[in-house]
Design a protein around this nucleic acid. Structure first.
Length: 584
RNA sequence: CGGGCAGUAGCGCAGGGGCUAGCGCACUUGGUUCGGGACCAAGGGGUCGGCGGUUCAAAUCCGCCUUGCCCGACCA
């Protein structure tokens, strides 16, 4: 590609609002262009990188037996009504009516679509197992896109779906994906870790996320350095200390102004772990069948020394959504905010009790009377509820496996894998006849990779003060040929030769000053730069500089194509040597 | 959805009732220069986000709307 005729161009200054380096360089180098909030175009350079990433993804998915398909972005709402997600997903899913008034949606994922196809294809166990995948556009109307390609509304995703007759089959393909993902990310050059995760709106039980650890990430990951335990904070477990003792008589005491755990603990001169905190949320419970919505107050009880993890609470309460409760909703159930507990409360509410409360005794809890608390309250005797782990893990807490102190870090989710089970096959009647003649629901898994987000993470990982320096496997071109001569005829010849060797060349043939050419080359960050200038030309040489390391060598123009092919092979080998293989 | 900031040329910004709306970069033409964002000269490019109001006069003041960014809520 000649730079003189390239569609995009570079920017000297960063567009306002480009907050992180990777995003700034992608914009300035002309890889991408924003069109709206969370909506981007890929320009030629960006598109080439994305294409390379997709090709790596394809190879690895094919390697584990995936068959590539392409499903429609526009789905009839009917299939989303079948699974209930038409109702349970809120404004995040774009909806519209077609010309005859049929409800349509823009698919934000494709479990419904793929299950709809599969139920027509899979009738016998003989057809299983099957895995299909696609690389396709998703639209999720995120309330707050940010950080360039990290969190967008329209994005390209590789999503695959597996169909098995039993759990063992699911586990096999799940494990194959688990490893394939490590191979994909490492072939792209992106360091990442896998963490146990929540299944979110996908449903299902076992799930992992792939995280690129970076301060720009929005997810919090809890890790144990000692034993290797990792989990998203939303689901991270930790070892709690309990303080069982003999139950004492409940007793009401005056606690004026003690509306918070800190003030209560200091007023009574006790530790926070001797108190019981009540957190009020309102959960919405939506019927999958009718879409009818019901709100119900949820009282979450947790020991005063811990915080509630909303995600865990939502699961424990089986709520579709959670929001903080309004004061009236709390008082309506006979509880007094600041001095609240379920003791003596009435009305329709759900009480979820963290095991820290259930397994400790004689805690101080609200008396539902302004200025008063109870001493020595005990779960089971004074109040009831569903016991669950709803506590939020944080750094310093004990690892659930080995007890070592946990650490917390930020990460960007670049992929996820879910064991769906039969949630979609049952809802959509995707059954097969097994050897025993019985109809059984197909067991499914789904597996995603955010392609654009992967590029964004790579840009974040590979840059310096001058611009991008993407690894050769994902860089838009392998070689950047920079001619500094007034007359391009020698460079034209080199360009032709390199291309005939099958090398991907970006050719700087513009009439610009050397400074501009070098600055743009650094910004775009092609891994191998060939400089043709008078300095080396007098010896019949060109300079070859590696963007990654700055390492420079001279090569004769004679036979340059072969030399460069070797350079490319060396760069590629570095990456191949770093391929990560990991199995569950 | 709450809170904050912003929208003036492709990009970054200035101008804050008055005459032809400016600067840097980018762009065009001519000339000089030619290995790390050159120089000289002459040019081109604007519904000042939109609608309405106040005024003799609005980019400028007021109202509504809209779009983008940041923080939170939310989210893969």
């Amino acid at each position: 590609m000649r730079m003189s005729s390239m569609f995009s161009r570079t920017l000297r200054e960063a567009p306002a609002g480009a907050d992180c380096k990777g995003y700034e360089y992608l914009l300035r180098a002309g890889y991408i262009k924003q069109m709206g909030a969370g909506i981007f175009s890929l320009l030629p350079l960006g598109f080439r990188s994305i294409t390379k990433i997709q090709e790596i993804v394809r190879q690895e998915m094919n390697r584990i037996g995936g068959q590539e398909i392409l499903m429609p972005l526009v789905n009839p709402a009917d299939i989303w009504k079948e699974t209930g997600r038409y109702y349970s997903i809120d404004k995040e899913m774009a909806r519209f009516k077609d010309r005859v008034g049929r409800d349509m949606v823009l698919a934000m994922t494709h479990e419904e679509a793929v299950t709809d196809i599969a139920r027509g294809e899979i009738d016998s166990y003989k057809r299983l197992p099957l895995t299909v995948y696609q690389i396709q556009t998703k639209f999720r109307d995120d309330p707050r896109p940010r950080a360039g390609l990290i969190r967008v509304r329209e994005f390209t995703m590789k999503d695959s779906y597996s169909f098995d007759r039993d759990q063992a089959g699911l586990e096999k393909i799940y494990n194959e994906h688990y490893n394939a993902y490590f191979r994909i990310f490492s072939r792209c050059g992106l360091p990442c870790i896998s963490v146990a995760s929540d299944s979110g709106m996908m449903g299902g039980k076992i799930a992992h996320e792939y995280m690129y650890l970076s301060p720009i990430g929005e997810d919090t990951i809890i890790t144990c350095k000692k034993c290797g335990y990792t989990a998203n904070k939303q689901v991270a477990a930790f070892k709690k200390d309990y303080y069982p003792e003999d139950m004492k008589e409940i007793e009401k005491v005056e606690t004026p102004e003690a509306k918070t755990i800190e003030s209560l603990a200091s007023y009574l001169n006790i530790q926070p772990e001797k108190t019981c905190k009540a957190v009020f949320m309102v959960g919405s419970f939506i019927s999958d069948k009718t879409g009818e919505e019901e709100d119900k107050l949820i009282v979450a009880l947790i020991r005063g020394d811990m915080e509630v993890e909303e995600n865990k609470l939502q699961h424990a309460a089986r709520a579709n959504e959670l929001r903080p409760a309004h004061e009236e909703e709390i008082t309506a159930c006979g509880m007094v905010p600041g001095f609240a507990s379920p003791i003596g409360a009435k009305g329709n509410f759900i009480c979820i009790v963290d095991d820290s409360v259930a397994k400790s005794n004689n805690l101080v809890a609200g008396a539902n009377e302004a200025g008063y608390h109870f001493l020595n309250t005990n779960f089971g005797r004074d109040f009831q509820g569903t016991v669950a782990d709803i506590a939020s893990a944080k750094s310093g807490y004990k690892c659930p496996h080995c007890g070592a102190p946990l650490e917390s870090s930020k990460g960007v989710e670049i992929g996820n894998i879910f064991q769906l089970g039969t949630k979609y096959s049952e809802a959509m009647n995707c059954y097969f006849q097994d050897e025993d003649g019985k109809q059984k629901p197909v067991i499914m898994g789904c597996y995603g990779i955010g392609i654009g987000r992967l590029l964004a993470c790579l840009a974040e990982e590979y840059n310096d003060e001058n611009g991008l320096k993407l690894p050769i496997a994902v860089a838009p071109y392998q070689v950047h040929l920079v001619s500094l001569l007034k007359d391009n005829s020698i460079a034209d010849g080199i360009y032709e030769e390199l291309q005939s060797e099958g090398i991907e060349v970006l050719y700087e043939d513009r009439k610009e000053s050397a400074g501009v050419k070098f600055a743009d080359a650094d910004l775009i960050g092609i891994p191998i730069r060939i400089t043709l200038g008078n300095r080396s030309l007098k010896d019949g040489n060109v300079e070859v500089k590696l963007r990654g390391t700055g390492e420079t060598t001279s090569y004769s123009i004679e036979g340059l194509g072969k030399q460069i092919r070797q350079e490319i092979a060396k760069e590629q080998k570095k990456m191949d040597d770093a391929i990560v293989e990991k199995y569950l």
